[in-house]
Design a binder for these strands. Structure first.
Lengths: 222, 222
DNA sequence: GTCTATACACCGATAGAC
DNA sequence: GTCTATCGGTGTATAGAC
């Protein structure tokens, strides 16, 4: 990689899911300079939130001038698109489970990963940052497409676990897709609530209820 | 779009907000001028989204100058706080059910109200606006407090329905709070997904699954 | 109460030196 | 590749006439 200026077309979005499918970490080739900018963007987001994110702020975090950022990215919009791609690469690989495990444990792993019972301050800010970004999907097609992909990927992960559990007799023969969508929506709603309200106890209640729901829904009747 | 302060689309937006104003628990007296500003803010939000909301835009919708807005509100922050209060007054009363009805019907009413199966374009924009506003709760204490109140109110509404159903023997003796939190999180998650992704079928799947969940959870075993 | 005009900060983005 | 300097635009907010 020569470190040439990024022309800014989001032409890589398509490979994303397919590369994920074979379980590999789909690292696109980030220049060292680009990666530094991504990390500076991340820090600026944590510190100022999406509404307070500006090229100046990113440049401050980067320790360089604004113009140097425009050497690597043609516009703020392009930079944000790249950042979203970068962030999603990291996130999605962290949810993967090792197949072949006990389906109950796999489900538990996914739920705990997406909706941890206890979050330290840093994790909370990360989640808040994600939610802040996702809020922009309301008015940005590019953002919405990215988050569509994320949800699609997460739903597929849950669906596959349930499906495998059904096939090897661990679970009852339920509609795997319906269960997956339910679990995903519940998790998303609880996570959303966690960072946009102060109802601390709600997440714990949802976690309990979710376990109960999965048990009722999936455990074979004796 | 003409330069006119009001166009047809914006008028219908007014209806959406004002029609909810019957029987409300509005504990504040809005002057006519203030209410006009609130409605202009609402139209500007629908049209430009939260990120594109400015005093200029509101003034345009209002058909008056920026300065006239500052006569009524000392700052944009104050104005937005007032708007949130105004909008929540309207919203909360719209979810109320007539007590004494069949608990099944009451639950169905709440779910359909919060997560309608079919949404026309306008309703979608209203939901998108709410999500856009709520995203700001991540970085604004005032916003977060308001949405905490909303969720608290909604959870209480659901909890009370379940509780009454238990007491009159319609429902099984479950943990009403746990069920309420589960339902609320699922609804919020599905609504959130609806406006921040393009997974159209997901909402329908969640609705089906939610009905199934409530039936399994609440219907007395015979 | 509403207007016009304006102050001042910051934004995204560019030009051109080095 | 990074810098300084700057452009044009928009934002919030205010001053002062009417």
């Amino acid at each position: 990689m020569t470190g040439e200026p990024n022309d800014g077309c989001a032409d890589r979005a398509d490979d994303e899911l397919t590369e994920m499918a074979d379980g590999g970490t789909s690292d696109r080739d980030w220049t060292e300079a680009e990666e530094e900018i991504m990390l500076a963007t991340y820090r600026a987001l944590l510190e100022h939130g999406y509404a307070g994110l500006s090229i100046s702020r990113i440049a401050d975090e980067l320790g360089k001038s604004k113009a140097s950022i425009y050497y690597h990215y043609d516009s703020k919009e392009v930079l944000l698109g790249a950042f979203l791609e970068y962030a999603i690469d990291q996130f999605e690989s962290s949810v993967q489970t090792e197949t072949g495990e006990d389906p109950w444990a796999e489900l538990e792993h996914v739920v705990e990963k997406l909706l941890p019972l206890r979050v330290d301050e840093e994790k909370r800010r990360v989640q808040a940052t994600v939610i802040g970004l996702r809020g922009q999907a309301v008015t940005s097609d590019a953002f919405r497409e990215q988050f569509t992909e994320i949800d699609e990927q997460l739903a597929a992960t849950i669906r596959d676990i349930v499906q495998r559990g059904i096939e090897n007799g661990t679970f009852r023969d339920v509609d795997a897709d319906r269960v997956a969508e339910h679990v995903l929506a519940t998790i998303n709603g609880a996570m959303y609530g966690r960072v946009t309200s102060d109802r601390e106890t709600a997440v714990a209640a949802v976690r309990v209820s979710l376990s109960s729901y999965l048990d009722t829904e999936l455990r074979p009747q004796s």
